[in-house]
Structures are given as C-alpha cells and as structure tokens.
C-alpha cells in the first residue's frame, strides 16, 4: 500500500529549542497510526505541522502526495482534525456547527443535509441535532467533533487525544467509531493517546521521546522486542522451585511472596509447573503490554490527564 502520510527528516525549532529533531515515518493508507510519547515529546508539534497550523523548520511532509507547506489548501481538504481541546462553536447548535463546516469545505449544498444525518447517526447523536453545543456533555461534544471531522469525507482523520478526559464507557464508544470508520470507509486514522491499552488496537505505533522517534512498529512487534511475558508463582516449597528453575535454566527474581519467572519458553515453564503442581498456591501469567514497551524505551510512565 502507498503511504498516505510521508514525513522525511522533519525538524521543528522554536528559537534555539528543538521540539522535533529530524524524524521520518510513513503511514499506510487505511491504517490506524498511533503516536505515543511523554509530555513535551513533540507529538503535538508534529500533528500541528501536519495539519498546516505550524510551519516546519526543515524536512518534507506530505499528505496524500501533497506538500503541507506549499499545497496547504489541498492538504486541508484531504484531512479532518479533532483537536485535544474542543473547537466547536459553543453558541451554535450541533446542526449549525456541521453546516458551517460544510460551507468551509465547499460540500455541495444538495448533499449537506444527507451528510449531516449520516455522520450524526454514525456517532449516535441524531436526536441532538437541533441542540446547542453548550448543552452537550464532554463525551457528546467529542463525538460531534468526530462527526464534523468526517463530514467532508477526508482521507486522513487526525485525532489528538480523542479520549482524554472521558469516562471508560464513552472511550470504548469512541474507539468503536474509530475502528468502524477505518474498516468501512478506509479512512486513515492518525492519533495520539495517553492510554496505552487503547493503542493496542492500532496497526502501527510510533513512540516519540525528546523530539525523536525511538520506536515505530506494530504493537505486536514492539511487545515482542521490548517486553517479556512473565509468570508470577507462589509456592509452598520455594527451595524446590528455585532448584527446578536452576535446572531448567529459567531466569527469575525472588520476591518476598512470589517468584517472577521469565516465561519466554512456555514448554519448559510448563514442565516446572508440572513438577510443582501440588504445592503451587498461586499462579499468574502476564503478557507484556505497550505500557511495558513504553517504560522500557523511554524510562518514564505516561502521565494521564495532562497536556502533551
């Protein structure tokens, strides 16, 4: 597949401070691409430059083959953006917001009503069409923004922390819409998020730290490379377990109440467990998560709820 977003040697400086330092990446058409990184890593700068809000310092950035610096109008037509902070016109109704958007993006007048119904149905807000935005809850506002970002049928939808500050149920819903859109409409999703578990469903994850991309792969490959599956074992006969672990050459760490054992070799682990089956009191097998990947790479935990 052709990359819909191409970034080559992109650098952005604010005076002497380098916010983004010579990064390159591609995003395949129709995929979900997640950008992770601690606060101040340069994610927002990158997203804002791709959305034609900021001017790059150096490098080439293209969306759908169009240059973000010299073909701004074409790029703007090809993208939809859902910002971290609400950009809805709060004094107007949902419908008026969507209509205004249609004017901005020159949606043919005959299609406007139909498209509004379609996107509102998609985010399940049809009955809120005539309501003022100020009367909507935070989650509903986000859904209206997603609807608005889609109404001009963009090729890429940028979502800057689409689920931050929302309750778990609403977050799950938002992800449903995102996946549905990707599958049904083949819209490329470019998003940043603080929630590692959410990034798991993405096709590709890039981790940014200190203005550089430090890892860029599928969630599966990242986990495989940076994390280990681990078994947490509590036993009545610790000495015997230790001896077995030595014999089978399994790495472990002894903790006061349990043993943390590397579970990269499942058959061997099963043999150890088999010999201990009558004395094991507790067993937990933990798969590596993207959060572990993140910690491993950046050495810091993602802080939730703050701006990045």
């Amino acid at each position: 597949m052709n990359p819909i977003i191409e970034v080559k040697n992109f650098t952005k400086r604010y005076g002497k401070f380098t916010a983004v330092d010579n990064i390159s990446f591609d995003v395949a058409e129709g995929s979900i691409f997640a950008f992770l990184g601690p606060n101040g890593a340069g994610k927002s700068t990158t997203i804002n430059t791709l959305c034609t809000i900021f001017e790059k310092t150096e490098g080439i950035l293209r969306i759908d083959g169009k240059d973000v610096s010299t073909q701004k109008s074409e790029v703007r037509r090809a993208i939809g953006v859902v910002f971290q902070d609400s950009t809805l016109d709060k004094k107007m109704t949902v419908e008026e917001n969507l209509k205004m958007h249609c004017v901005f993006y020159s949606v043919p007048k005959s299609e406007v009503n139909e498209r509004i119904s379609f996107v509102l149905e998609l985010v399940e807000l049809s009955e809120w069409r005539k309501k003022r935005v100020s009367a909507l809850s935070g989650g509903m506002k986000r859904r209206v923004e997603i609807a608005r970002g889609l109404i001009h049928y963009p090729k890429v939808l940028f979502l800057d922390e689409p689920t931050t500050g929302l309750d778990p149920q609403t977050r799950a819903h938002i992800w449903e819409y995102i996946v549905k859109l990707q599958k049904e409409k083949n819209i490329t999703m470019f998003l940043t998020t603080h929630y590692m578990d959410e990034a798991e469903i993405c096709n590709q994850v890039a981790i940014m730290d200190g203005g550089k991309i430090v890892a860029n792969d599928t969630p599966f490959a990242l986990k495989k490379q940076y994390t280990k599956d681990r078994a947490y074992i509590t036993t009545e006969r610790p000495e015997e377990l230790e001896r077995l672990l030595h014999t089978y050459n399994l790495d472990y760490i002894k903790k006061p109440k349990y043993y943390r054992v590397d579970a990269c070799n499942i058959p061997t682990l099963l043999q150890v467990l088999g010999e201990q089956k009558d004395v094991i009191t507790d067993l937990e097998l933990k798969k590596g998560t993207l959060n572990d990947v993140f910690l491993e790479i950046t050495g810091k935990e993602i802080r939730e709820g703050t701006k990045s």
């Binding site: 703007r76 953006v81 910002f83 809805l88 016109d89 709060k90 958007h101 901005f104 608005r148």
Partner: peptide
C-alpha cells in the same frame, strides 16, 4: 473570543 474558545482553530485548519 472565538480564538480563545477554540472555534477559530477549526476555521483555520479548513481550506477557507
């Protein structure tokens, strides 16, 4: 006010 409320951002990423 529109700039502060964010609405202007929506206007400015549009092809308008």
């Amino acid at each position: 006010d529109d700039m502060a409320s964010g609405f202007m951002k929506e206007v400015l990423v549009s092809p308008v």
